[in-house]
Simulated scan of single mutants.
Amino acid sequence: MPALKRLDQLLSNLGYCSRKEVRYLLKDKRVTVQGQYANSPALKVAPETVLVDGEVLDTPEGILVMLNKPLGYVCSHDSAEGMRIYDLLPARWESRNPKIVSVGRLDKDTTGLILVTDNTQLVHQLTSPKHHVDKLYEVTVDRPLQPDIIDAFAQGVVLGDGAEQCLPAKVEIISENIANVTLNEGKYHQVRRMFAACGYHVEALHRHQFGPFSLQDLMQGEWQAVTLPC
Rank of each mutant, 00 (worst) to 15 (best):
residue 104 G to M: 08
residue 139 V to N: 01
residue 81 E to H: 05
residue 79 S to K: 15
residue 111 T to V: 07
residue 89 L to K: 13
residue 95 S to F: 09
residue 77 H to D: 00
residue 135 K to M: 05
residue 145 L to A: 03
residue 121 Q to S: 08
residue 72 G to F: 15
residue 73 Y to T: 02
residue 66 M to K: 05
residue 108 K to F: 14
residue 64 L to E: 06
residue 145 L to Y: 10
residue 110 T to Y: 05
residue 103 V to K: 12
residue 88 L to Y: 11
residue 114 I to L: 14
residue 128 S to W: 09
residue 79 S to Y: 07
residue 66 M to W: 09
residue 80 A to Y: 15
residue 125 Q to I: 01
residue 88 L to P: 06
residue 95 S to L: 10
residue 120 T to G: 10
residue 61 E to L: 03
residue 84 R to T: 14
residue 123 V to R: 02
residue 85 I to H: 13
residue 97 N to R: 13
residue 110 T to S: 09
residue 119 N to C: 04
residue 77 H to F: 07
residue 126 L to K: 01
residue 76 S to R: 09
residue 148 D to C: 04
residue 99 K to F: 15
residue 141 V to K: 05
residue 124 H to M: 05
residue 143 R to S: 09
residue 154 A to Q: 13
residue 101 V to R: 13
residue 119 N to E: 08
residue 118 D to V: 01
residue 132 H to A: 14
residue 97 N to F: 07
residue 68 N to R: 10
residue 153 F to D: 13
residue 65 V to A: 06
residue 86 Y to Q: 00
residue 139 V to P: 10
residue 95 S to P: 00
residue 70 P to T: 05
residue 132 H to V: 13
residue 133 V to C: 05
residue 112 G to C: 03
residue 65 V to W: 06
residue 130 K to M: 04
residue 153 F to M: 09
residue 147 P to W: 06
residue 145 L to T: 10
residue 112 G to K: 04
residue 101 V to N: 08
residue 92 R to N: 03
residue 95 S to R: 07
residue 94 E to S: 12
residue 110 T to L: 00
residue 142 D to P: 10
residue 72 G to A: 15
residue 69 K to R: 13
residue 91 A to G: 11
residue 127 T to V: 02
residue 93 W to C: 07
residue 73 Y to E: 00
residue 154 A to H: 06
residue 108 K to W: 11
residue 95 S to T: 07
residue 149 I to N: 09
residue 113 L to N: 05
residue 68 N to P: 14
residue 138 E to N: 06
residue 120 T to E: 02
residue 150 I to T: 07
residue 119 N to D: 14
residue 153 F to Y: 15
residue 152 A to W: 04
residue 102 S to I: 07
residue 69 K to I: 07
residue 94 E to M: 15
